[in-house]
Each structure stands twice: as C-alpha cells, then as structure tokens.
C-alpha cells in the first residue's frame, strides 16, 4: 500500500508538470481550434532560458521562474505574429496551422541549438537543496513540493485570470463563440495574441520544472516526448477544457508511474495509447470536453 501511495505522490508531481504543459495546448485549441505543435519547442526554450538564468547568471529560483514566464510569453507573441496570424488573415484551414507550427518548432529548436548547443545540460545542484520529508511513511522531496507548489500557484492564478478579469472572460468568450464575442466588442486578434502569451509562458515554466525534476535533461530536443503526452492529456480531459487538461495531465503522470511500477516499463506506451484510442472512439470529447456546436 505504501508503495502505491508513494508512487501516487511521484505520479502527481510528474503529472502536475504535464498538466501545466497541457493547459497551454488546450487553451490554444479552445480559442483557435488548432493544435500548436510549436508548444513543445517552447517548453525546451523555457528550460534553456532558465538554465542561463540559474547557472550562468546565478539568479535565485523565484526570479528565474518569473523571468522565464516573461521570456517565453514574449516568444509566444512572436510565434502568433509570425506563424499563425498570417494564416488567419488568409483564412487557411487548421491543417495549414498545424504544418506551420511544425515549421516554427524546427526553427526554434535549431536556434536553441545554436545558442545552447546540442548537449544536455543540468541546473546547478544547489538550486533545490536535497531534502526529504517523511509524511505518514511516505517520502516527499523538497523538489516535489516546490514543483507542485509552483504549479498550484500558477494554476490558481490562471483560474483567477480567467474568471475575474476582463481579458480572461474575453478569452473564454472567444473560445465559446467568436461571432458573439465580436458583437460584445472583443478584439479577436489581440485576444488571441494574449492567449499565446499566456500559454507559452506556462509552457516555458513547465520546461523549467521538467529541468529540475530530471537532472541533466535540459536540451533543445527535450520537448519531443512532451508533445505527445500533452496531446494525450488533452484528449483524455477534453479538448478546449482547462480543468480537463489539468486532470488529463495528472492522469497521464500517475498512469505512467503506475504502469511502470505494476506492469512493465516497456509496455507503458502501448497501454497508454491504446487507452487513448479507446477514449477517442468512445467519447471523443474526452472526460470533460464539450460538444462542438459553435460556428467560428
């Protein structure tokens, strides 16, 4: 039983990072109905920027998080302006956006490689002191607490933004019904740009957290696996739904850890994606997703 709970703890802390990353995917999908495959590259850039801040510049963790948020957020704005907005102007379909996001991802990875090289990097060992706590027979590391804490803070902030602020309601209005949002005076392109700022910021911090969780794993290519897992999370939780993305991410994290523990690590992917296929076929809107009823 203790093993199960222990793995649950591990799964939750891993899953929380997936959740943060998945939220970015789902927000963009909710607003534009496209899958942004440059998001994993943004995660990698975030991790790398954090590396520079933490290692090269010796900045403290809270400041590093805040700066990464800002830096990758701005990157999101550039991404929207360069890759997605021109396609919106030409009324290209969702396939075109998918391809262009792939192109943007390649460019980002290549530029990152130029700046940081291709070899995996690690954050300075002292960033999070190696400390463990014993709670009811379970071991929780300070690292896990910090990660979970950061994610919770960001998620709560996001929720407040979405429900209490003018811009948050505007984003949700556009996701719900773009034509009606226009009638209420919401400027579509500006709201979309802000959405990209938001999602990329969160993706970047997810990268930082991944870098802390897996020592020595920071490289321009680290985003690849997360792309798939992020997609899996939003399929599970329902595309376009933020809470769903979070639950999906947690489920993937916990599921991953459990499958490795109880089945075998090699079949992990097969089982996971097989389940995903079933979810899509049986309930395409995911556990919490909505019916597609609006006209864009």
């Amino acid at each position: 039983m203790t093993v199960f709970l222990q793995q649950l703890v591990n799964g939750i802390s891993l899953g929380s990072v997936y959740a943060l990353f998945a939220v970015g995917f789902t927000l963009v999908f909710g607003v534009l109905e496209i899958i942004n495959l440059a998001h994993p590259a943004v995660l990698a850039v975030g991790a790398l920027v954090a590396y520079t801040l933490l290692s090269t510049l010796g900045v403290g963790l809270p400041l590093a998080v805040a700066s990464t948020l800002l830096a990758t957020g701005l990157l999101g704005l550039v991404l929207d302006a360069a890759a997605f907005r021109p396609l919106r102007a030409r009324r290209a379909g969702p396939l075109a956006s998918l391809i262009t996001s792939i192109g943007a991802a390649l460019i980002l990875v290549s530029l990152a490689q130029r700046v940081w090289g291709a070899e995996p990097l690690g954050y300075p060992p002292g960033t999070i002191p190696l400390r463990f706590f014993s709670v009811g027979g379970l071991t929780i590391s300070l690292l896990q607490i910090v990660i979970l804490g950061t994610v919770i803070v960001l998620v709560v902030a996001l929720r407040l933004l979405m429900t209490r602020t003018r811009v948050g309601i505007a984003i949700r209005a556009v996701a719900e019904n773009p034509a009606t949002a226009s009638l209420l005076g919401v400027p579509f392109n500006r709201v979309v740009a802000f959405t990209f700022f938001l999602t990329s910021a969160l993706g970047g911090v997810a990268g930082l957290l991944v870098g802390m969780l897996f020592q020595g794993s920071v490289s321009p290519f680290m985003g690849d696996t997360y792309g798939l897992k992020g997609l899996a999370a939003i399929i599970l939780g329902g595309m376009g739904d933020i809470t769903g993305a979070m639950l999906g991410g947690l489920a993937i994290g916990v599921g991953e850890v459990m499958i490795v523990q109880y089945l075998s690590s090699s079949y992990r992917d097969a089982v996971a994606f097989g389940l995903l296929f079933l979810v899509l076929v049986i309930r395409p809107t995911g556990l919490l997703g909505r019916q597609r009823s609006r006209e864009a």
Binding site: E33, I35, P94, L228, L231, A232, I235, M239, S266, Y267, R268, D269, A270, A272, F273, G274, L276, F277, L280, V281, P284
Partner: peptide, 27 residues
C-alpha cells in the same frame, strides 16, 4: 471504429494507434 470521428479527433486517434504500433514493435 474511427469513422465517426471528424477532423482533428480522427487525426489524434490515428496518432494514438501509431504509438501503439511503435510500442509493440519495440517490445
């Protein structure tokens, strides 16, 4: 089974299938 799915959902289902195949081949 995937026939009832449209657009991006179908794409994701086929993607999931692809991963299952890859994992199977791996093991």
């Amino acid at each position: 089974p995937a026939l009832r799915l449209r657009g991006i959902y179908l794409a994701l289902a086929t993607l999931a299938f692809g991963e299952v195949v890859r994992a199977a081949a791996l093991n």
